[in-house]
């Protein structure tokens, strides 16, 4: 039972969130931060699909997941566009050099 689908899925959800956020925390590069975010988004997707399945509303779950995919793809695209601009203006994607706004 330990390896039942819900259990695995919930571990995957928490694992993806953990790995993704960890990636955001320790990355020096903006693109990698976006990669981290996307990984965490996958966690949310699995969570919705699983929640839909377990509450016998798999289609609602799918519908929510679809919306999340669209929304977070848009966010990723905007983030990448910003990253491209950052690269053009700053000449680097290194996050520690993006600290002129502080204090």
């Amino acid at each position: 039972m330990i390896f039942s689908l819900p259990n695995i899925a919930i571990v995957v959800v928490l694992g993806l969130f953990g790995v993704g956020l960890y990636g955001v925390l320790i990355s020096r590069n903006l693109i990698k931060v976006v990669v981290g975010l996307q990984i965490a988004v996958k966690g949310a997707l699995v969570a919705f699909v699983l929640a839909g399945r377990l509450s016998s509303q798999v289609d609602v779950g799918q519908s929510l997941a679809l919306t999340v995919i669209v929304a977070d793809t848009i966010v990723a695209v905007v983030a990448l566009a910003l990253a491209v601009q950052v690269r053009r203006k700053f000449g680097t994607l290194d996050i520690p050099s993006l600290t002129s706004l502080r204090r």
Partner: peptide, 24 residues
């Protein structure tokens, strides 16, 4: 640009946490 990228990333993380809460 710097402000926007910080705003975007942090907002996105916030909304991800919300998503997890909603799925719960």
């Amino acid at each position: 640009l710097e402000a926007a990228i910080k705003y975007l990333i942090q907002s996105a993380i916030g909304s991800l946490l919300v998503l997890l809460g909603i799925s719960l």
